[in-house]
């Protein structure tokens, strides 16, 4: 590996990175279930689960053999920008033992999701990445890592466009063209050495235990 290009990038502290926070509103529309409410935060440990869980026999009634999939259970949670961010932020930078999130290479405001055309089942996901320095030769590898992680983690209805953010890289145009070429990406994935590098980068994302 060439000498470290950017010896000291500014590193953002983990607690400043955007994350999903559970909301505290009561599930108002708890239909019909007895007025028991799910656990009371800190006090959940002292108020055992049985205070609100249905009685094991309740499912025995022959009328509803399959347990009533409670309404809370089936409320769909659409894939949003935060979920995309959580997928790519923990990817490890090829050079530093840090993550793309803490190096601000990927940022929540640079993730865009919109349907290909009104009513189309396809969704175009655009991710803009900001290399730590303007002449970073690893921008392509980082872009490839982000694209491979998203293509492996998202359903096929997504069209993933990973591009370098405007004006943040000297050869942005060539890198974008490479990252956009589906055929070259497919060929790259069959190249053993490159896959090794990518797998190391993604190890962080899967295991999630890189040094934040």
């Amino acid at each position: 590996m060439s000498e470290i290009l950017n010896a000291n990038p500014t590193i953002r502290n983990a607690s400043d990175l955007p994350s999903r926070r559970p909301d505290s509103t009561i599930p108002t529309s708890s239909s019909g279930a007895s007025q028991r409410y799910p656990p009371l935060g800190l006090f959940a440990s002292t108020i055992p689960a049985s205070a609100y869980l249905p009685d094991p026999f309740a499912t025995a009634t022959p009328s509803s053999p399959t347990s009533s999939i409670s309404e809370e259970d089936s409320a769909p949670e659409p894939i949003d920008a935060q979920e995309i961010y959580d997928l790519i932020a923990p990817i490890a930078d090829p050079e530093h033992p840090l993550t793309l999130g803490s190096l601000s290479v990927v940022n929540l405001p640079d993730i865009f999701l919109e349907p290909l055309s009104p009513g189309s089942p396809l969704t175009v996901l655009t991710v803009l990445i900001t290399p730590t320095i303007t002449h970073c030769s690893l921008a392509t590898v980082i872009g490839l890592g982000v694209r491979v992680r998203l293509e492996q983690a998202l359903p096929p209805r997504f069209r993933v466009d990973v591009r370098i953010k405007e004006g943040t890289h000297s050869t942005a145009e060539q890198v974008n063209r490479q990252l956009g070429d589906k055929e070259r990406v497919a060929a790259a994935l069959e190249n053993g050495t490159l896959m090794g590098v990518l797998r190391k980068m993604l190890q962080g994302a899967e295991g999630g235990e890189t040094a934040l």
């Binding site: 189309s120 089942p121 396809l122 359903p155 096929p156 209805r157 589906k182």
Partner: peptide, 9 residues
């Protein structure tokens, strides 16, 4: 034909 191969390219 739209979505000739479903959501695939």
């Amino acid at each position: 034909v739209e979505a000739a191969h479903g959501v695939f390219e």
